[in-house]
Structures are given as structure tokens and as C-alpha cells.
Design a protein around this nucleic acid. Structure first.
Lengths: 235, 235
DNA sequence: TTGTGCATTATTGTATACAATAGTGATGCG
DNA sequence: CGCATCACTATTGTATACAATAATGCACAA
């Protein structure tokens, strides 16, 4: 209880803060699948009550980043090989469409944002920060969905990419190249050119490539601690 | 406070009970878009604390059946014409695929379930219970997604159909035939025959028909009370 | 009458307290 | 030594209490 009554910066959305922090930690692979997410523990880390922690966990459970077992608690989700396959099947169904639509609507500003993403991605890779690179790579796809201006499908894509982080954590084979930002670059080019057909095809093949870099076999994953992994991001 | 300490049948999942009750009420059009869902009020109706009501409302908010405005409360969602269009675009993207997949996997038991749905649907229409008919019609589509055995996409379809209830409540033009269960029947036939191509096409045209029965113009909708509408279902 | 400001009320956001369930470890018996 | 039982602890589920924000209505003046 360090913050007593002074400067407890809880301006709004305490729950969302926790959601974002946990989601980021999962996306960056600081929290491994099956890690137990105790309510008290998280509450202490972020200085909020269990009430908001529970709300945050339920929110994350809904997008299947965590799994809640009644009377047992919340754990970082651990997609089965089958679920992993489904996630990428769904992406293959939705994302080429968003890429096509984005190609028809992207403004110069949008292109700039996408290119910026790629630059940051490269920087993260060079810095050896694979977690951050992975997160940025995912947000690149989300950004395309946003540009496509289809909220409903975009929201689906968002959850699929979130789950993809878990899939990659579990099933990525390290032999393959980490993040083929070449594919991202070509995609941006097609979108910038307004070449919707090409954008659609590039996205499709990009997803096929991603999928082929997975090794969908069962694999045990041990849980990790928690506090030190989260507190760095809390700062 | 009728149930004091005797027979308070709260065996499990109090939250889910509330979620299901509210979702059903919305699906059956007993709760109109924009209706205020006060926490105390709902808690009294179902004899649960605000804690579980809030959890239920958050759950419903995530699938966009209700909209939560901070410090204002929860309201039955009211999709804009644009959102309505997006919902059906997404359905057109996903459901033909699930129909095709279902055609390849349906067991005789599955076919029986689908036919049963159609029968119940007819019965509801004959009984003049449009709300129930609409709900059954939606569950027919969900059942197909279940048969398709694609959990991820199936979950998306589920949320889309939920939102479709709201869209229909707002934008359905009464001139059109209420529920063309003829389309459903043909679909079941194709699925039963394992004719995946036909199933896919039938679903696609079915959705086009549905969409063309909508009149996507802004329309004001007044909120309703609440208690009497819900208590009948609580019984 | 109409509009503005303030006080009051109602409702939601958060924290805490209590209840119920599951996990844990010691003890005792076979 | 192994294992089952049971008490105890830890954690989650639910309810209630308190805090903060928004809605309401009244008074009063233009």
C-alpha cells in the first residue's frame, strides 16, 4: 500500500489498464500459455482491487487470451493444435478481404502508419526484442483491418491475431525466419497502389507462409512465475 | 426478498443464468434497442447482487448485445445502419463456408436436429410467437456452424446472429415474409445430401434474401420499461 | 414562461467482507 | 513405506459498503 490518498492516478478505466497490460504481456510472450493469473497477485501488482482484476480477466477470457476455470482461476490460454489451425483458417478467410478493402480506402496517412509499423518492427528485430517485434507484426494486421473500415470483421481479426500470439508461442518452429517483413512491405506497396487484387493475394499467401511455419503438434509448456514479468511493464 | 435461506437454487453459474435470460429477452424482441438495463433493477428481478449483474452485462457488452457507457449504465445495443450492413456482410463471408463444411460432416442425428428446428420454427409462427420464431431461426444458423465443427468461426457466427436480432428489430420491413423457412428446408436438404456446393450457394442466397428484407434507414426507437417484460421469462 | 444554478437523489465504479470451493500437508493406519 | 483421511490454508464466488459521477428537480431571476 504505497499510494495512500495522494496521487492515486486512477483517472479512468482502471479495468482497461489491467486488460491492456496483461494483453501486452501475453502478446510479447512474457506470459507463457498455462500461466496462472491469480486475482490477488495481479491486484497487488497494479494496485487495484480484485473487482477490477476479475473484470479484466473476464474481458480477456472472452477474446480467449485467458481461460477461466470455475473455482480454479484464470490461466493464460493454451490453444490446442486444432484451435491453432482454426485460428489461421479463420484469418485466411477474413484477412484477404480486409486487405482488398484497405487497398481501396487507404489514405496517404494510412500508408505512412503502415510503413512506420514496418520500421519499428525492423528496429525491434535488430534489437533482439522478439516479443515486441511479434506484437508489432500483429498490430500491422490490425491496422489493415482498421483501414479497411469494417468494424465488425476488424474486431474478429483483432481477436484472431491476439490468439495467434499464443499459437506462435506454442507452435512456432524456430528454424523459420522470424518475421518476413518483406511480405508486409509488399503488402503495403499493393495497398498504396490501390491494387486491391494484388493486396488480397499477397495477404493470402502471407498467411499461408505463416501457417506453414507452424508445427502443430502437442507440446507441454510449463507455467512461469508472474510478478517479475509483469512489474517491468508496470513501471 | 422472497427466497430467504431455503431453496435458493444457485447451484452454479449465476452469471450465466442472467446472461442467458437477458440474451433470450433481446433475441425474442421483448427488450427493444436502447432500453436501459439498470443494475439494481436486474439484480432484484433475478435475486442476485449487482456483482453478478455487472459481470453479465459486461459479457453481453462484449458480444455487442448491450452497450455500456461509463458512469451511465448499460443499454440494449442499437446498431446503426452501417453496423447492420457490416453484420450481414460478415455473415455473407462466413456462413456460406460453414454451410459447405456442415454438408461434408453432418450426421443423421444432425439432420434430425435441423429438421426439428424447422418444425419448431413453424409451430412458433403458427402460434403467432414471432419472437420465438426469430430466435429459433437464428439458432438454426448457429446449429449449422456447430455441425461445421469450426469453433472459432462458429463463435463469430454466434455473435453475428445475436446482433442480427437487433438489426431485425430495428430495420426489418414488415412487408416481407417473416421467416422463409423454405430456404432453411432447402438448406437442410442440401446438407443431408452432402451437396456442399449447393449448401454453400443456398446459404449465400438465403443471406442475400435476408439482407434485402431490411430497410437500412435511421429510425428512432423508444426505450421500454423492463420489469414486466423480464419477469414473465423469469418465472 | 423559460432558462440557469445549485442541492438532492439516483446510479454506477471500486473496494472490502463474507461464503464456498479447491488445493495442501500432516497424521495415522494398513 | 505407501496411501487414505482430515484439518487447515489459499483462492475464488458472491454480497455488501463506500466513493464518485451523472441525472433530477426545485428555486429564483430575467
Amino acid at each position: 500500500m504505497s499510494a495512500m490518498h495522494i496521487s492515486t492516478p486512477k483517472p479512468q478505466n482502471a479495468t482497461q489498464k489491467v486488460v491492456d497490460a496483461l494483453a501486452l504481456a501475453i502478446h510479447e510472450h512474457r506470459l507463457a500459455p498455462r500461466t496462472k493469473l491469480g486475482e490477488d497477485e495481479i491486484g497487488e501488482i497494479y494496485n487495484v482491487s480484485r473487482t477490477v482484476v476479475r473484470a479484466a480477466l473476464q474481458s480477456l477470457a472472452h477474446i480467449q487470451l485467458v481461460e477461466i476455470q470455475r473455482n480454479k482461476g484464470a490461466f493464460v490460454a493454451s490453444p490446442t493444435p486444432r484451435e491453432a489451425r482454426e485460428v489461421f483458417e479463420a484469418r485466411a478467410l477474413l484477412e484477404p478481404r480486409t486487405a482488398r478493402s484497405a487497398a481501396g480506402r487507404a489514405t496517404p496517412n494510412d500508408i505512412e502508419i503502415l510503413n512506420d509499423h514496418i520500421i519499428q518492427e525492423h528496429a525491434a528485430i535488430d534489437a533482439g526484442d522478439n516479443g515486441r517485434a511479434l506484437n508489432l507484426s500483429g498490430r500491422f494486421h490490425i491496422e489493415i483491418a482498421r483501414i479497411a473500415d469494417q468494424d465488425t470483421i476488424g474486431r474478429f481479426v483483432e481477436t484472431l491475431i491476439a490468439r495467434s500470439s499464443l499459437v506462435i508461442a506454442l507452435y512456432w518452429r524456430r528454424e523459420s525466419a522470424l518475421c518476413e517483413s518483406h511480405a508486409h512491405h509488399a503488402l503495403v506497396q499493393a495497398i498504396a497502389d490501390g491494387d486491391d487484387q494484388n493486396a488480397e493475394e499477397l495477404m493470402q499467401s502471407h498467411l499461408v507462409d505463416l501457417n506453414s511455419a507452424l508445427d502443430l503438434r502437442d507440446r507441454p509448456v510449463q507455467a512461469q512465475n508472474l510478478r517479475e514479468l509483469l512489474q517491468t511493464s508496470h513501471a
